[in-house]
Design a protein around this nucleic acid. Sequence first.
DNA 1: GCCGTTTTCGGCCCGACTGTTTTCAGTCG
Length: 598
Amino acid sequence: MTDGSANAADGSPPPPPAGEAPGNGTIAARLTELADLLEIADANPFRVRAYRSAARTFKGLAEPAAALLAAGRPLTELQGVGKDLAANVATLLESGTFPSLEEARDAVPPGVRTMLRLPGLGPKKVGAIYRDLGVKTLEGLEAAIADGSLAGLPGFGKKTGEKVLANLALVREGIARSLLARSLPIAESLADAVRAAPGTTACEPVGSVRRRAESVGDVDLSAASTDPDAAVEAFCTHPLVAETLSRTHRTARVRLTVDPGRPTEAELVVNAPEAWGAGLILGTGSKTHVAALRDWLSPAGLTLTDAGLIRDGVLIDSATEAAVYAAAGVAFVPPELREGGNGVLRVADLEQGGGLPTLVELGDLRGDLHMHTTASDGAGTIREMAAAAKARGLKYIAITDHSQRVTMANGLNAERLRAHWRAIDAANVLTPGVRILKGIECDILEDATLDLPDDVLADADWVVAVLHYGLSQPRDQIMKRLTTALESPHVDCIGHPSGRLIGKRPGADINWEAFLDRAAATGTLLEINAAPERLDLSAEHAREAANRGIPIVINTDAHAPGAVGAATWGVYQARRAGLTAEQVANTRDWPGLKALLK
DNA sequence: GCCGTTTTCGGCCCGACTGTTTTCAGTCG
């Protein structure tokens, strides 16, 4: 579900390529950032709410705000956007920021805002930590817990500190790394600049970006060029580069312009075109994978260096990755399977040679079975969502609005849901070419019951059951809740099973062995939720699920027409799990998928 | 800061849970 109070550093869409006006997602992220900063500074709560409300408006806008302005339509037409906000957004579109945001950023140290990522700490508590204790960093917060000063604040106690300490490591990593969805567009933009340099024959993002890891530290690029200096120069003068940290005739390391949630540093290595394949492999990693590959090359007397594949001091063909893998006598390994350390790829997989799976691709998907409309917290109508799906070539969608428990998202009770389904029936007639299924995202309540009665769920085409609340309950209760859902004859799928948010929230304490066994036994499908901050199931759990024969569904959880079918990040996750199209249920047509249900 | 007026201010999405309290503010979704 969306939430206007979400941290702007998380879940916000990728920033636009340099030189383009910020998109609606970026506008929403900036407004939310300002709301957070104002709330920490104890500003008028209704002013805060105004920014959050406007952020929601921009996030759900069908047309880019810049296009509205270009068409001469004032932004004050929009719900919750008055004179001041319209002026701020116009300035943001022109310059990338606006004065009141900069003032608020100056007034609150960056370390203070990062505290919002910690579960249990909201703007009020963070504001108190900053203003009453003068604590500005996570280190300072840790110290304040240790010396008891945090527990001395009104409204704070022992448990607050314990909860902070329990999540500190996760949040630290979340701050040091940025989501793939935030890093990949930046990496591509840098690569485009290098590709345009004279003498460059190829340039690709490498490292964790190319392996499509769920989060990325620094952005790494590899290039091939007959004029390495020109490639390095193009890289260092890119508009996103704030400062060159180091530079040689064929490498450079740079600091990127500051933006919350974005990677901070990038590195380029330029090789000769005849060593391009070797450079790509070394740059892509992972270390574990490269070590495994070297183990296979060394018996043949081959050494993998960034000057190419060498035997007895002589360069062997290493202009392509395929040539290097062929020299090692193993099958080409897709970058997503080179993660190594995560248990997805083992040396044994490499040794099997041609045994690597043909991974699922975005174009294989025929349906999207998790999305919202204006009936709950989505920004599009049923027909708008269906039209968007059709435009992306999908054959079927399930409308899965929230159930009644999710009050803030305007969740549906039985009566409203049945009315919504009648509207879906009507929309189906008006939208040929894409089948709209009557679905629901049904909450699994804290007491291990479902949020809607069986007779209602029985009439749905598709039920995705989820945990939203009480994620920090003890394992026994979490398992009891999941078991209820798995054993319900009406639940087709468990959505975002863990409830984790990458770098922000660990997710529920699940006994995965038992959960996956039960899902397999009951014939319940499991979701890879494609939202960049969720990617839930993880690659490891998706792999384990598929090994048990559980069909995986890749869903977008779209809250606006523009997001329907945008399953890119979920597909990367599935590929890292080694999944084939066969193992992903929504590569089938609807009758084919339906045959997999209980 | 926005909205909608009884046109110049007063009101502004919701409900449950948690941890802190001993009646409730803050957080979460």
